[in-house]
Amino acid sequence: MRPPRDERALVRPHVVTGGRAHPSRNVFDLVTLVIAVSDRTTGLNPEQRRIVTLCRGGALSVAEIAGHLRLPVGVARVLLSDLMDSGHVTTRAPAPSARPPRLQLLQEVLDGLRARL
């Protein structure tokens, strides 16, 4: 018996990713922030086009992109790394050397949470 439609994936993952299971880059963590840097969508497949369109408005995490487009995270990663290679999206993050040390991050998280009380 087939599951109800809304429980089925909208896309067959191997179709959108061209059969590849691994992204060409390894930069996309679940919380990597992504933003579109090009409006061009010619030559992109429909799923890639949806990503570029979504990411035009501003930065979102990889997890949010997957959630909004109802793609498994692994598939979103493959698509995003191709879009990065083709110059359509970029990541917004401090250079590794500029990422605050863990202790400082934890303190900032703590301060931010306390401010919400």
């Binding site: 919380v31 922030l33 501003g58 930065a59 995490s61 993050a93 401090p94 605050p100």
Partner: peptide, 10 residues
């Protein structure tokens, strides 16, 4: 969307 100033995600 996130504010433009956000640089770090944890």
């Amino acid at each position: 969307y996130l504010p433009d100033t956000v640089r770090t995600a944890v």
